Simulated assay, not measured.
Amino acid sequence: MSKKDTTYILNEIRNYLDKFNNASDEYYSFIKLSNELSELRTTIQRIELADASIPYINQLKKQYDAKEQAYIALYKYIKHGLISSWYETNKIIKDIGKISDADLSNKNKQMQYLNHYKTLLQENNNIIKPTLKERIAYSLSNLIRKR
Rank of each mutant, 00 (worst) to 15 (best):
D5K: 12
N21Q: 13
N35W: 02
I13Q: 01
N21C: 03
D18W: 10
L10E: 02
D25Q: 15
R46W: 03
L33Y: 10
S2M: 07
Y16R: 04
D25C: 08
S24F: 08
D25H: 13
F30R: 05
R41E: 13
N21D: 14
Y16T: 01
S24L: 10
T43S: 09
D25E: 13
L33R: 08
N21H: 10
Y27L: 15
D25S: 13
E36A: 11
E39M: 08
N15H: 07
L10H: 04
I44R: 03
T7R: 12
S29V: 00
E36D: 15
K19Q: 09
Y56D: 05
T7Y: 03
L40K: 05
D51H: 08
L60G: 02
K62F: 09
L49A: 14
A52S: 10
D65F: 05
R46P: 07
D5F: 08
T7P: 00
Y16F: 05
N58M: 07
K32P: 02
T6N: 05
F30N: 07
Y56C: 02
Y64N: 05
A50R: 02
S29E: 14
K19S: 08
Y27M: 14
K62C: 06
E12S: 01
T43N: 07
S34N: 15
T7V: 05
S53H: 06
Q45L: 15
Y16I: 02
N21M: 07
I9R: 01
K4L: 13
L40M: 07
K4E: 15
K4G: 00
D18Y: 11
E12L: 05
N22Q: 14
I31N: 12
S2T: 14
Y8A: 07
Q63V: 09
E48H: 08
Y64S: 04
K4V: 11
K19T: 00
K4T: 13
F30I: 04
D25W: 02
M1F: 00
D18R: 12
